[in-house]
Design a protein around this nucleic acid. Structure first.
Lengths: 234, 234
DNA sequence: ACCTGAACACCGTTCAAGT
DNA sequence: ACCTGAACACCGTTCAAGT
């Protein structure tokens, strides 16, 4: 094990090591996320960026999951709540969700962890408030609106996560897509007649067309599906 | 570094090391998954189980993602395609999706990776075939059926992933849920009136009620939302 | 062709010790 | 109270060398 000389990075004349704070840690994490992807957002990498050891971070952050959730909520601040400000409630609702999806797709690797690590920070709360307000404006009953907002976010998150499959190597994900497409098109007619017949449809549409249909479909479903009556007056 | 004596597990008299095969590797992975969770399904752990070194696995498996996808498809063999065999198409469709969700929830940690790692194996294909057949039986036009099947699986997967938050420590996930619930209930009235008013609704319903509503909602949406006309005759 | 040991380049988290 | 170095117990993947 050679002694590996202390790496002097391009940061010249670091201005007196700044005090460690939770916000500073999260800011560093966001910076690394943007520049290098979620897989590099590790305790060790962040500590290195802040010129300290990983153990020091545990004063401000409970564990990696906690850190990731905080980063996610931070990013949710970029979601535009007033996209399509002039349309009717359905258009504005769609606009918010499109913006939400777009933000997650800008940080593709984070979208994945968002599926499970529901944030509970201020930006997430703000987003839910907006969705509920728009559904209320559309006259959707309370319980349908509440469950509906939940599903809308879930689907938007999952879509972003899925499309974020373009992790690093575009070649590899293209190959995987090709393999999936071939599996569908070459499904044995005898056992998989519907897959065979609809292979084209399964693969059809631009991401935008699919998203647009998906959101219309969800809103139609939410509007038209009553929840158990007694839950509406909680 | 102490020499750590070769761990002799409870496997007594291992019967002549079996030849390495892809199927053997996947079988070992499934066994570890059931017993110890996805986080233990690592190249090193599997290699240990098969009495070899991690490098040996790379002859049969491209990388960890490939392995995980194969494991997932394997498990999908357990999904019941004929649940609710006597009901109408909506009931049978719901039954298949409930079964799918249940299988993923039996292997909670896997559900998470399923959100991104779409399998493309035989069992996944079989499942899609079934969904398309049921939607066709319900008279849903081709493009709606194709996109609909896709979304149905996506939502079912995401739900399972989310509920699998009960990773290991039930205490910790309960605490997280409590924190989220409190954030909703204590949202400032001035800025978050809808969240405040609907906090009860956001948290209402058993998992079964929510799932049931969600599936009805999706089916309603799929049935009633036309896709771009030209895509219907691909 | 298949299998292996050893190495490379990493992880999260804990803990005793310092300030 | 906060910060640290060092350690523990792991990872995935590659590669030269063996069979």
């Amino acid at each position: 094990m050679t002694p590996r000389p202390r790496k002097v990075t391009s940061r010249r004349e670091r201005p007196a090591k700044p005090a460690l704070t939770r916000d500073g840690i999260i800011a560093a994490a966001v910076a690394i996320l943007s520049a290098e992807g979620l897989e590099k957002v590790t305790m060790r990498r962040i500590a290195q960026e802040l010129d300290t050891g990983p153990a020091s971070l545990y004063v401000y952050v409970a564990n990696t999951a906690d850190l990731r959730a905080a980063v996610l909520d931070e990013l949710l601040g970029e979601v535009s709540l007033d996209a399509a400000g002039d349309g009717d409630w359905r258009e504005r609702l769609t606009g918010v969700l499109v913006s939400y999806t777009a933000v997650l797709m800008d940080y593709p690797t984070l979208a994945r962890s968002a599926v499970t690590a529901r944030p509970s920070g201020q930006h997430y709360l703000r987003l839910i408030e907006r969705l509920l307000a728009l559904l209320d404006e559309g006259g959707v009953p309370p319980q349908q609106a509440a469950w509906g907002a939940d599903v809308l976010l879930q689907v938007a998150t999952a879509s972003a996560a899925e499309h974020s499959a373009s992790d690093r190597p575009p070649a590899e994900s293209a190959a995987a897509w090709d393999a999936a497409a071939r599996a569908l098109r070459e499904a044995p007619e005898a056992t998989h007649p519907h897959v065979r017949a609809l292979a084209g449809n399964l693969l059809a549409g631009s991401p935008e067309e699919r998203q647009s249909w998906g959101l219309r479909m969800l809103i139609n479903g939410i509007v038209s599906t009553p929840a158990p009556a007694e839950l509406n007056d909680l």
